[in-house]
Amino acid sequence: MRVRNKPWADDLITENPQAIVLNPEHYRGQWQSRFKSVQPLHVEIGTGKGQFLIGMAVAHPEFNFVGIELQKSVLAAALKQSLPAELPNLQWVLADGQGVNDFFEPREVTQLYLNFSDPWPKTRHEKRRLTYKSFLKSYAEVLGDGGQLQFKTDNRHLFEYSIMSMTSFGLNLTELSLDLHADVAASQGELENIETEYEQKFAAKGQPIYRLVAQFPKK
């Protein structure tokens, strides 16, 4: 997908070094220094315009959050949206999420989020899917035993593929939803769901949203 350039993006990023990291490998093992309080670290790979992670940071001040996004203009939009809230538990990273184990030390992260990742539907592109086994291996390194991975998508094929990939890798599925919004409504507030921009768009068209939560095994 082509992303329109935002001429103000560079200036906004330069003016807010307290909220955005351009050299994430420098903070490997030291991410807590970027936050006001030392708290469990949650990371979203492919954060888009930031609606999900901003919502999570507001709803859960007891956790620290890092959002990783490769597209500068997209991440600048997330940064712009988050600045008025002055959230001390939220940081943005301009980088390719494929380098997650270069950015975080083993067991430095408690939970990972993958929201509406590119499905890469062609078989020859399987290795690019963020739930392919090589990616799961890198997640296992930064999460450690018992770490959790939350995955949401509108793509049924990718969801089914991810279930098979994760279970083959040895992950335990602790939550599985084939219609997340229906399940949230039926739970009467017991099931939390912070929506992403894509999620709202697809749900408005009546398309079901799929979600799973998987846990890496405790050895």
Rank of each mutant, 00 (worst) to 15 (best):
R4K: 02
N5Y: 14
K6W: 15
P7H: 07
W8Q: 13
A9M: 08
A9P: 06
D10P: 01
I13T: 00
E15C: 12
P17I: 12
Q18Y: 04
A19Y: 10
V21H: 08
L22K: 15
L22R: 08
P24I: 00
H26E: 15
H26W: 09
H26P: 03
Y27D: 15
Y27F: 10
R28C: 03
G29R: 11
G29F: 00
Q30M: 01
Q30H: 15
W31P: 12
W31S: 13
F35A: 02
K36H: 11
Q39R: 10
Q39F: 09
P40V: 14
L41M: 07
H42T: 06
H42Q: 12
E44D: 04
E44K: 09
I45P: 07
G48Y: 07
K49G: 02
G50C: 05
F52N: 04
L53A: 03
L53V: 14
M56G: 02
A57W: 03
A57I: 01
A59M: 07
H60W: 11
P61M: 12
E62N: 10
F63D: 01
N64I: 14
V66D: 00
G67K: 08
G67Y: 04
G67P: 07
G67F: 05
I68V: 15
E69G: 13
L70H: 10
L70A: 15
L70G: 14
Q71P: 00
K72F: 00
V74R: 04
A76M: 12
A76Q: 09
A78N: 03
P84S: 00
A85H: 13
A85G: 04
A85Q: 09
E86N: 12
L87K: 07
N89L: 07
L90E: 13
W92Y: 11
L94D: 11
L94G: 11
D96V: 08
G97V: 02
G97P: 01
V100D: 02
D102G: 08
F103N: 02
F103Q: 06
E105V: 01
P106A: 12
R107F: 05
V109G: 12
T110G: 07
L112P: 02
L114D: 12
L114G: 13
L114H: 08
L114Y: 08
N115E: 00
N115T: 13
F116Q: 01
F116G: 03
S117P: 06
D118Y: 09
P119N: 14
W120R: 14
W120P: 07
K122C: 01
R124N: 13
H125E: 05
E126A: 15
R128I: 14
R129G: 04
L130A: 06
Y132L: 02
Y132V: 00
Y132I: 02
S134I: 05
F135H: 14
L136C: 10
L136G: 15
K137N: 12
K137T: 13
K137P: 00
S138C: 06
S138V: 03
Y139H: 12
A140M: 03
A140Y: 04
E141M: 09
E141R: 09
V142F: 15
L143P: 02
L143T: 04
G144I: 10
G144W: 06
G144M: 08
D145R: 09
G146L: 07
G147I: 03
